[in-house]
């Protein structure tokens, strides 16, 4: 078996540090997801309304967030708010703000897409049956939209978890930074450790994202 340098993980508290790093990443992403999902659903619904003013504002918000790389957003919120307003946000708070802004924008577009994909005749059939507007949404539109949203939002959530690797640029020590620290601290003693440690990081990310996929598959089946 090739030397993967895994013994490095058993030195001192290295494995614990890696897991604590994973939790730091998960904390940032899951708090942001918890903010993004409801806000995204709200904004996505607003986007399907006919009000041109609301539509324009949301469109600009979405495009700005979508065009701007997350790294730039992180720098803007972490350093920019200090320059402009003198706020001293911690790296974690800045990350949660950026990831929530980003998640909300992307989620709102997913919701908008899912909503307008429900064909017009479904609404009309509901009306023809004498259902009220609330009933049409409750029994016809929302269930179908939710089902369409599941795979899309799982994509977004796992992407948000993985993108937390950028927050090391604003001083937050998360799993990838810990991995780099461990590899570099053992550069001479175990030069092969990089491969083994990145393998472990991969597995940890996998086990963090996998339950989400499983839950999604369960929901998809249940709501069929």
């Amino acid at each position: 078996m090739p030397d993967l340098g895994l013994e490095v993980l058993l030195k001192g508290q290295n494995m614990e540090r890696l897991l604590i790093g994973l939790l730091a990443a998960l904390k940032i992403s899951l708090v942001s997801v918890a903010v993004s999902l409801p806000l995204g659903i709200l904004l996505g619904t607003l986007m399907t309304w006919k009000n041109p003013f609301i539509k324009a504002v949301l469109r600009v918000y979405l495009e700005i967030i979508r065009i701007m790389p997350q790294m730039v957003l992180l720098f803007l919120v972490f350093f920019g708010t200090t320059r402009a307003f003198g706020w001293d946000l911690s790296g974690e708070s800045a990350s949660v703000i950026v990831f929530s802004l980003w998640g909300t924008a992307e989620m709102s577009d997913l919701v908008r897409g899912a909503l307008i994909s429900i064909p017009l005749h479904q609404y009309e059939s509901g009306e023809a049956l004498g259902l009220s507007k609330v009933q049409i949404y409750r029994y016809i539109v929302v269930p179908q939209t939710l089902r369409r949203l599941i795979p899309l939002s799982i994509n977004l959530i796992t992407r948000m978890i993985k993108t937390t690797s950028l927050v090391l640029m604003i001083g937050v020590v998360e799993i990838l930074k810990v991995a780099q620290q461990i590899i570099e601290a053992n550069r001479t003693a175990s030069p092969n450790a990089a491969f083994g440690i990145y393998l472990v990081v991969f597995l940890l990310y996998f086990f963090a994202c996998w339950p989400i996929s499983v839950a999604a598959r369960y929901l998809e089946k249940r709501w069929r």
Binding site: Q13, V178, Q180, Q181, E184, A185
Partner: peptide
């Protein structure tokens, strides 16, 4: 730096060295 051995790095106990 937290990953530039031997100038600034973190040892296996999480201490800066």
């Amino acid at each position: 730096f937290s990953d530039k051995n031997p100038f600034g790095y973190v040892d296996e106990n999480g201490e800066y060295q």
